[in-house]
Design a protein around this nucleic acid. Sequence first.
DNA 1: TGTACATCAGTGAACGCGCGTTCACTGATGTAC
DNA 2: TGTACATCAGTGAACGCGCGTTCACTGATGTAC
Lengths: 195, 195
Amino acid sequence: MMRYSAEHKQETRERIVHAASRRFRRAGAGVGIGQLMQALKLTHGGFYRHFRSKDVLLREAVTSAFGEMGTRLQRAVQNAPPERKLRALIETYLSDAHCANSAGGCPMAALISEAHRYPRSVRAAIGGAIEEIASLTARLMPGTTAEERRQQALVLFSGMAGTLAVARAVTDPELRRTILEAARKTYLEAFSRRR
Amino acid sequence: MMRYSAEHKQETRERIVHAASRRFRRAGAGVGIGQLMQALKLTHGGFYRHFRSKDVLLREAVTSAFGEMGTRLQRAVQNAPPERKLRALIETYLSDAHCANSAGGCPMAALISEAHRYPRSVRAAIGGAIEEIASLTARLMPGTTAEERRQQALVLFSGMAGTLAVARAVTDPELRRTILEAARKTYLEAFSRRR
DNA sequence: TGTACATCAGTGAACGCGCGTTCACTGATGTAC
DNA sequence: TGTACATCAGTGAACGCGCGTTCACTGATGTAC
């Protein structure tokens, strides 16, 4: 049998979370533990040495995906000049690449409509992550108060997540492109600071 | 055994589609045929006298739900005076009632993120239904050309669907209210005809 | 009009399958002595 | 330093369960005669 170094367990745990995070986003939380472990060349039984239940994994996988997403958006915004930051945010989120990459993309777009059936603990984590992303991007939003900008961020984020999910659901590639393109334009105009 | 009148079969079929349409919207397409038929006081075996497969039912249930939704939105718009029509559309869609009623509400909001895993035939039907709703509401949108207004309708619709789904996913009722309220305000402003 | 029969919506057992979870087991290690 | 032993990540069979689908069957009817 293989040898387990001191950090080996922790490492395996992280590999499970990472794989789960990608697979849940691609195929929903219905993905089985068997498939998940098999992808890591492990057997399903070992899963419970790392997590008390699948729900715990789901919560961690979703949280990790939100973190990843936040980092990516933040980076896109940081790399843009001040007057282009909002555009960078919107064009990164609503890019064709993000649309084609659900496994590595925004967990909100990937899971919105099934999320309300998740256990409360997972939904609570999602709520927290959404608020975090909103406050992360609030400074780019129009509005005279901090609260107003936070709310604008919530609207933009949930709207873009819906748009991305709809674009993915549709079979006609032209309709998909139209939706993404129109949304980029509309959101950019609607959320630009006026005056 | 019960007697079946001439229209009885057709009627049963419609009852199955109706129940499925509500249940799929509430709990996703994972709802079983057994549960569905049981709710109608029938047994699962009889299902296949009405549908070749579950996929066929899914397609019909989703299409029916989109039709229902279109009718409801159209009615809300018709009952509003001209300068209030856009407001009526947005406030109907993003109402607390609609948020609380996923079974009887918009199938797009209920199923967006799982829809891209449906069979192609179902996804194609969804694409068609989305275009239909867009053209139904296009005349309320800003834009100088018909195509521009159609695109605006697509953006508004997919954005509101995402907003509704996010509002449902969240556990904190205050966050839910904030999202809906802010979205109503923002979308109304953003999609009002300017000038 | 009366009778024999074909029809077919609905029944319920059965199929193979994958699910989440449990558990007795394996065996390489770090540790106690 | 050398040896006995406890630890515990990972294995794989087994559990009860629900899934979509099939199929032989039931039995009230409309229809053919």
